Computed example of a mutant assay.
Amino acid sequence: MERKIKILIVEDEMIIAANISLQLTELGYEVTGIVPRGEEALMHIKSEIPDILLLDINLKGDLDGIETALAMQKSHDIPVIYLTANSDNAHFERAKETHPYGFIAKPFKKLDLQRAIQLTITQVNSKNGRDSESRPQESNPSILNDCIFVRHLNSMVKVNIEDILYIEAERNYCRIFTRNKEYLLVITLKEMDKKLPSKHFLRIHRSYIINISQIKEIATSHIVIARKAIPIGKSLKNELLKRLQTI
C-alpha cells in the first residue's frame, strides 16, 4: 500500500486553515502541519519535508508567501500551490518567478482544492516518469471487458464501463467523468481511444470520447450526456449516426 501524499498548509487565517486541513484529510491526503508564518514553514520543512506546499500568498510576518517559496527553493524542490484572495497582476508576476504548480483563488470549493492537487501530482509524476524507467501508473490504466482500473489518490479504483459518461482531453491528460466522480489520468486521448472497447465508446471530437449508451439527446452540432453538451466533429458525425443505428 502506497503512503499518503503529505501536504503542509501555510495559512495565517486559522479558520480557513482548519477547514482546508479537514478537506484534505477527507480527500485522503496527510496534513503534516498547519503554520501561520513563512518563517515557521521553513523551520517545519527542515524536520519534515512535505510532498506539496499549500501556501497563502498574503502571509503576515517578515516573509509573504512568495518570499517563503523563494527561500524554500534555495534548498528544496517542493511543488507549490498558492492560495490567494488577491489576483492582481503584480502578485501574479511575482508568483510566476517561483514556478508554482497552481493557484487557488479564495473563496474556493473542495473540488477546486482537489483538482489543483491532482493536477500537481500528475505533473510531478509525469516529470519524474521521463527521468526514470517506470512511468506513472495513471498512464497505463488496466482495461478489461466490463471495467477499467485507474489510480485515484493512493489506490487503484475499479470503474465499471457502464458508469463512464464521457472522457475529456486536457493536453496530455484525460479526465474520466462518471455520475459521481472524476478521474485524471496521465494518458493522451488518442492512446485512451486505442485502449477502450469500441463496442461502448466512440471518439466524436478531438477532445471527447463518449459512452454511446449514455447519450440523452442528439442535436445538429452536439450531443447531450448528463446535461453536458458535447460537440461533434463534422467528420465524425456520420460514424456516430451509423453506430446508433446498429445498437
Rank of each mutant, 00 (worst) to 15 (best):
I5K: 07
K6V: 02
D12M: 04
I16M: 11
N19A: 13
N19I: 08
N19C: 00
E26D: 13
L27I: 06
L27D: 06
E30L: 12
G38T: 06
H44V: 08
P50Q: 05
P50K: 07
L55K: 10
N58M: 10
D62V: 11
D64K: 03
I66Q: 05
I66F: 04
E67T: 05
V80K: 11
N86H: 14
S87F: 06
D88P: 04
N89D: 12
A90M: 09
F92R: 12
F92T: 02
E93T: 07
T98C: 06
A105V: 07
P107I: 09
L111I: 14
I117E: 10
S126F: 13
D131A: 12
S134P: 00
E138A: 13
I143R: 07
L144A: 14
L144H: 14
I148P: 04
F149E: 08
L153C: 06
N154G: 12
V159E: 03
E168I: 06
E170W: 05
K181Q: 13
L184T: 07
L184S: 04
T188D: 10
L196Q: 03
P197M: 03
K199L: 13
I204S: 05
S207T: 06
S207Q: 09
S207W: 01
Y208G: 07
Y208V: 03
N211P: 01
I218S: 07
V224I: 14
K228L: 01
A229Q: 15
K237L: 02
L240C: 07
L240N: 06
L240V: 10
L241I: 13
L241T: 07
K242G: 00
K242W: 00
R243L: 02
R243T: 08
I247T: 12
I247Y: 10
